[in-house]
Amino acid sequence: MFEARLSQGAVLKKLIESIRDLVSEGNFDCSENGLSLQAMDSSHVALVAMLLRPDAFDPYRCDRSMPLGISLKSLSSILRCASNDDVITLRAEDPADQLSLVFENPQNDKVSEYVLNLMDIDSEHLGIPETVYDAVVHMSSSEFQRICRDLQQLSDSVSIDVSKEGVRFSAAGEVGSGSIALRQNTNVDSGDEATVIELQQQVNLTFSIKYLSMFAKTTPLCGRVTLCMSSDVPLLVEYKIDEVGYVRYYLAPKIEE
């Protein structure tokens, strides 16, 4: 039996909205470590790994680890029936062929119950090695979203260059070229706006903007984003979910053969 009650139902709504364009379906694994998902996009270029730890929920009960095969589009349709301030309870029997979702309003006078039919999904799990990255950029998530949106007008690729001075995003295409440089600026009033760089070594990598823009749909979940880069390894883009979880995206770089 799996049962998890999320007092901030909006977290689950935003989480599913943020990944539904990248992956169409996946196995949500429930275990004593929480509710997790690892799934690749259909072209196997990008991967999302998310975790909501048990302390995201109250209560959280999972007697035995099991996968919940879910169509993201279907789950998204059902979660759109929940209000942002609803409490959401997820429940599944073991073995699970359905996921029950209960939405309770804060006034405690309206209860909605939905049932999602689960799927059998053969999912391929990738082993992601622990990596010490050459460059780590902590920045405002809305600034990152804005940069992706702006440079997408020019090209389908963006180069990210991290040095001691700061981080520069640049793109070039048929209409011309553009670049946006952010300097380290820890002395700003709002903590969300600061750009902080941890640098072992200068890095310059090129990525598809289309995927970065899809990752940026996670912006409503967290005011900050972290970009982790090393030469010739996939980019890690991380959004933390309060202190109770994360959404991590990996994107393979474009490299010379």
Partner: peptide, 14 residues
């Protein structure tokens, strides 16, 4: 030119 790699080129199946 630059080529888009797949993730499996970097990460191994579990």
């Amino acid at each position: 030119g630059l080529n888009q790699k797949r993730l499996a080129w970097f990460f191994f199946p579990k």
